[in-house]
């Protein structure tokens, strides 16, 4: 397994606010990292640092390269899809494929055309005339047809209808499976990406509130569904959040209380979404 992304002590300060505070992580081939957090939590700044488009403190290496000083070389293996369209609207689909084939050494134009032939995107259409979903699909097709090792997705399915989401994730997963790659997905639609992830990095006001692989994450937290009589006992266990139900409440607890809580009710595995919401609310 090769390390594809390493970020050490990334810190970004705007005049008075801390956008990112001392974030470090590593990503190997085969890992899918979920970058979670609300708007303004620092996801975009962190992505900017990885792409080499944001001045920051700390050390970043993607595919062993420095994103700022070795950008041109790095971009052979690094790609990025954001929630806003970055494709030039005045080009036609055929023109952008031709341009990419000219400047990108590993771009396989026939592969891109083949991918697009299964969609509704016609080569002669101007990009500006495509729907949001089609633009994302086009961008992904271009990336899949290059030898991209690290792909960063920033809220990729924002504003996409269900059908486009489905095709998007289908192409994405198939592409990811076919090589030694790493994927970073920033999103606040946790439900949608939860089962894709192998690792999670959760930010809140620029700080890491949760970090680790999905298995250890599920080992760190659990939910106990306990009847109301046990309310006081559970409150002793410093519950992170609770959700009242019919006759019983669901409490999110840290794993150190697991053996104690087992006697009080049914143990349930929390979803990432539940942990996410609880941690974002905590102390806020």
């Amino acid at each position: 397994m090769s390390t594809l992304v390493s970020a050490a002590h990334i810190t970004k300060k705007y005049q008075s606010t801390m956008a990112v505070k001392d974030v470090s992580f590593e990503l190997q081939a085969g890992q899918v990292l979920g970058l979670l957090g609300h708007n303004g939590a620092g996801k975009s700044s962190l992505i900017g640092a990885l792409l080499g488009s944001l001045r920051h403190q700390g050390e970043v290496r993607v595919c062993g390269l420095n994103p700022v000083s070795q950008r041109a070389e790095l971009m052979r293996h690094l790609a990025y899809i954001s929630d806003v369209n970055v494709l030039p609207e005045w080009m036609t689909v055929a023109q952008i494929l031709r341009y990419t084939s000219g400047v990108h050494p590993s771009f396989d134009i026939s592969k891109a055309k083949e991918l697009l032939s299964s969609t509704q995107i016609a080569l002669r259409t101007k990009i500006g005339a495509l729907s949001k979903g089609m633009k994302v699909q086009l961008h992904l097709s271009i990336i899949i047809a290059t030898d991209t090792k690290v792909l960063i997705l920033d809220e990729p399915t924002l504003g996409l209808d269900l059908i486009y989401r489905d095709t998007f994730y289908r192409h994405l997963i198939e592409w990811f499976h076919d090589g030694e790659r790493a994927l970073i997905i920033a999103s606040h639609e946790v439900n949608e990406i939860e089962h894709l992830l192998t690792d999670v990095l959760m930010l809140k006001q620029g700080k890491v509130v949760l970090q680790g692989d999905m298995d250890s994450l599920h080992a760190q937290y659990f939910i106990v569904d306990a009847v109301h009589q046990h309310q006081e006992a559970i409150k002793q266990m410093a519950p992170i959040s609770s959700q009242a139900g019919l006759g019983s409440s669901k409490w999110l607890l840290r794993s150190e209380y697991r053996s104690q809580a087992e006697e009080l009710g049914e143990i349930i595995n929390p979803t990432l979404q539940e942990i996410f919401i609880a941690l974002q609310k905590e102390g806020a």
Binding site: Y169, H171, I173, F176, D178, E192, H195, T198
Partner: peptide, 15 residues
């Protein structure tokens, strides 16, 4: 194949 199941169910192929 693992690839098809993963893509169908939108889950990680390791799963």
């Amino acid at each position: 194949s693992v690839r098809v199941v993963a893509a169908d169910m939108k889950i990680n192929h390791l799963t």
